[in-house]
Design a protein around this nucleic acid. Sequence first.
DNA 1: GTCCCAATAAACATCT
DNA 2: AAGATGTTTATTGGGA
Length: 670
Amino acid sequence: MMQESARETISNSSMSQNGMSTLSSSQLEAGSRDGRSSAGDMSSEVSTVELLHLQQQQALQAARQLLLQQPGSGLKSPKSRDKQRPLQVPVSVAMMSPQVITPQQMQQILQQQVLSPQQLQALLQQQQAVMLQQVRTLALTLNPSHLHTCPYEEQQQQQQQLAAQQLVFQQQLLQMQQLQQQQHLLNMQRQGLLSLPGPAPGQAALPGQTLPQPAGLSPAELQQFGSGTGGGGGGASPPISHHSIANGQSPALNHRRERERERERDSLHEECGGTHPLYGHGVCKWPGCENICEDFGQFLKHLNSEHALDDRSTAQCRVQMQVVQQLEIQLSKERERLQAMMAHLHMRPSEPKSSPKPLNLVSSVTMSKNLPSASPPNLPQTPTTPTAPITPMAAMPQVPSILGGANVPSMGAMRRRHSDKYSMPLSSEIAPNYEFYKNADVRPPFTYATLIRQAIMDSADMQLTLNEIYSWFTRTFAYFRRNAATWKNAVRHNLSLHKCFVRVENVKGAVWTVDEMEYQKRRSQKITGSPSLVKNLPSSLGYGSALNASLQAALAETSLPLLGTPGLMNSGSTGPMGGSCHGLLGGDPPPTMMHSAHDGFNGSLDHLDTNGHSSPGYSPPVHMPIYVKEEPLNMDEDDCPMSLVTTANHSPELDDDRELEEGNLSEDLE
DNA sequence: GTCCCAATAAACATCT
DNA sequence: AAGATGTTTATTGGGA
């Protein structure tokens, strides 16, 4: 039920079947104009967030317990401003200046997957090094020579505490090393599984990518907790379980530890030189601090005073470590879930579908300009597995960025017009993702016009009845198996509205065809934004240089190999560059749609289009038994190269059967 | 702020 | 009469 509601929310469903007003995507986006609550927007992330929150609560409580366990050594009260100051360090900052990162930042990093495995590893190591260094710094601080004002008893107590803390940190070090090992395994797994659309190393976080912040361990929480007001939340929380994972070290682990020690020495050395991992850009990088220190000396002073080896600092370290560990676990779980999802959706290893051009995802993403720059141009594109699909996040056009968090924002996909302006033929776009769109309840990032055209072009005879178009929608996109009233209305609306769709009377009734010229006109209009070009189109023999010059670039992608998905490949491409006539000849056209002259038209087109690809969907008036719609495009008939070269081996009955199947399917789902 | 485009909703007409 | 199909208008929101 929970799933159902989330699904409903995500996919912009409605209850139109019952005659109730539909909840359109725009309504959702606008925050339910009709007063209907869009509650549940975040429902898709609830589980993840809650899990993370739970885990971090555990960490928090563990740290609290640690505090409670400490003998009343007198908590060093942090300055109140530290308690209250919110922590807001952009991830990008943290990445530019490698410092201790906050739990929030870690979450962001992990969730957004903006870090490469190497970067993640480096961050973990750095965190460890920083914490260790902090211990040493604190040890220096607690050196009797520095404790001028401390009474002897207090010194003793602090030294004992230091010893104890060092022990704790040794254990924590082991834990961190264990984490690193886990991370390493995760990295291996990740690299072997899929190529994440993360930025290349060194790239900062993506500003536009604003995933909702999980209910993590807020700085306020940390500070509050650190203040140790005993508020202890009372929970008898499970103790930190790092002991259990501290065993079983391998030689590799020891080696790694050696390297860590070296790194510590280096960092200590650096500190002497005036740098400190916890100090950068004049700001203390202690988690939750951000105290402004004008110079390094001031920073050291601040560090020793504010972040001394007290319960708070220790607890913060433990919390940080716990957070890291939990995030690791979370990452692992999420990754497993992702694998399961992908396996379920279409990346069945047995499927030969493995896209011959795995980069298509990239193209699709880059086309989607409103995709929150989730795809840096130089993002690593190492398709790993043959079946390595799209990570839904990236593939989801606006789902962005495509499933999950990106899923919800994908709702306005079509409305945002990525496809028409920058994208290419639908077939080349969805072909590699055919299975994905077919199974995933994700709105395709194409306009209705684009989809309708594709539906018609996909048909054997370049014409479809309205019902067949419906069926294509439901057959091709899982998304359109719901909200039938809404999108069917939209389909009809688009068919009527756009001149590029031509209604042709048929014996069966009316069928819809595509006036490819008109369609390209629209496209070129949008691509070039130059009306003059469009003006030239009809008169200047259409397929002349103007069209090609303007469209070739746009259509270049059309010529990409469109293999691998038969269902979408037959007609696939758009326009002169990729249009395909195969499968059009040699069939039995519907009685009223005989286009006897198509060969001649094709022949005459050869000099215009060396590819021999004309606009299969173009319907020369001569073939039009009835033009219901007035076509302003007064093409000279002789210039109409193409015909609705009807064919076919395509049996309407067969199609109808299929439609029936699909229809049933859609009906079931509607 | 304006314009354009696409999505959506809805009313209405026509056809089956 | 009901539903499907087709047309048209209005509204809304995003993007340029």
